[in-house]
Computed example of a mutant assay.
Amino acid sequence: MSRTGHSWIEPALEALDAALRGATPPIEFLPADDDAPRWVHRPDATDHGRDGEAPAVVVRTSGSTGTAKQTLLSAAALQASADATAAALGGHGHWLLTLQPSYVAGLAVLSRSLVAGTVPVPLLTGTTDPAAFAGAAEQLTAEPRFVSLVPTQLGRLLEAGDPRTLSALRSMDTILLGGGASPAPLLRRADQAGLHVVRTYGMSETCGGCVYDGHPLPGVTVDTDDAGRVRLAGPMVALGYLDDPELTTEHFDVEPLMGHRRYLTDDLGELTPAETPGATPELSISGRADDVINTGGVKVSAERVRAVLLDHPGVRDAFVGAAPDPDWGQRVCAAVVLSAVTRTDDTLGDLREAVRETLGPAAVPKDLHVLAALPLLTSGKPDRRELLQMFSG
């Protein structure tokens, strides 16, 4: 594989390849604030296999509560994920890496590149800087060309309006957009710009995205349990969690028809039957099970409130959550990022009225904060804990 000018990328690929082949203990990529990720071997995870598969990679995540989870991924699961992705996208290709490999989306780019025999072009800092993004994208030489982005990254790149950056985005055969709900206005802007965007849904426990534009990848089955929580089954499902058998039992079981491992998510979803005979149903996510706000006995979906806010042309970004309330139990709170030309007072009134008309009076945010930007994690996702603390302060 040819050199890319980034000294860490090829050693990282070699270390991941060795772990996938079982030549070394499992590997874990560590969070980094710069353009040079680090990794360590995890011999303590070696003996935690399942179903005849050994762990190859440990992905450490923290949920909204801050409770750490160490997800165990096998070589077979990562291979299945890479193959299913290639089948959906029309082949293996050359990737632009804009997400840290300590996150599953970045790890997936490395594992897909190993399968494809290509070296991804890394851009781990300045991912929303127009010139940096364009310069990195222009280093891609093979086809097809792909990039995985989170909505905040794509939104900021489009807002820049830089012709070179737009050309770089259009040069991508597919832009995978995941890591959170994709706002409808952002998707409209991307379509108007001539970009081929595919919405992805998945998590560390499924080796990343395994549902594209609402439809499961080859080999993946989707259903919901009696409470409406989404279940994902397939060969790319993780082995479980390291040193947490109780949480593993709570979230993982075996899908009875195909015998694949199945993961119970914390997301609420609905399956719409396909109109075409033989086609798969379409999955839509309505929010997280812990995002349902109970205010005065009325249950409000934080994600649906957010969708209404984002539909306003003056709103660039939004987050909705709950804060304790002595009278209502919980109150609906929201933080919004407005466009530069938006008049704050008029817009906030319009937003409250739009929520009232769409979802009813109980869903109207009682606290509406205007921020210059949402606080973000290094993954590009909103920092839920910081925002919820702000709502409660």
Score class of each variant (00 low, 15 high):
residue 82 A to F: 08
residue 82 A to E: 08
residue 83 D to P: 14
residue 84 A to L: 10
residue 84 A to K: 09
residue 87 A to T: 15
residue 88 A to L: 14
residue 94 H to I: 14
residue 95 W to H: 14
residue 96 L to S: 15
residue 97 L to E: 09
residue 98 T to G: 12
residue 102 S to K: 08
residue 102 S to M: 08
residue 103 Y to F: 14
residue 103 Y to W: 07
residue 106 G to L: 07
residue 107 L to D: 01
residue 109 V to I: 12
residue 110 L to P: 10
residue 111 S to C: 10
residue 112 R to D: 08
residue 114 L to R: 14
residue 114 L to M: 10
residue 114 L to T: 09
residue 116 A to M: 09
residue 117 G to A: 08
residue 121 V to Q: 11
residue 123 L to F: 02
residue 131 A to W: 05
residue 134 A to M: 04
residue 135 G to I: 07
residue 136 A to D: 05
residue 137 A to M: 07
residue 142 A to I: 10
residue 147 V to T: 09
residue 149 L to K: 05
residue 149 L to R: 05
residue 152 T to E: 05
residue 152 T to W: 04
residue 153 Q to Y: 05
residue 153 Q to L: 03
residue 153 Q to M: 07
residue 155 G to E: 04
residue 161 G to P: 11
residue 162 D to W: 10
residue 167 S to N: 15
residue 169 L to T: 15
residue 169 L to G: 14
residue 170 R to H: 14
residue 173 D to P: 09
residue 173 D to T: 13
residue 174 T to V: 15
residue 176 L to R: 12
residue 176 L to N: 06
residue 176 L to K: 06
residue 179 G to H: 02
residue 179 G to L: 01
residue 180 G to W: 00
residue 182 S to M: 07
residue 183 P to C: 03
residue 187 L to E: 06
residue 188 R to C: 08
residue 193 A to D: 07
residue 193 A to K: 13
residue 196 H to D: 14
residue 196 H to P: 08
residue 199 R to F: 01
residue 207 C to I: 00
residue 208 G to V: 00
residue 221 T to D: 07
residue 223 D to Y: 03
residue 224 T to E: 02
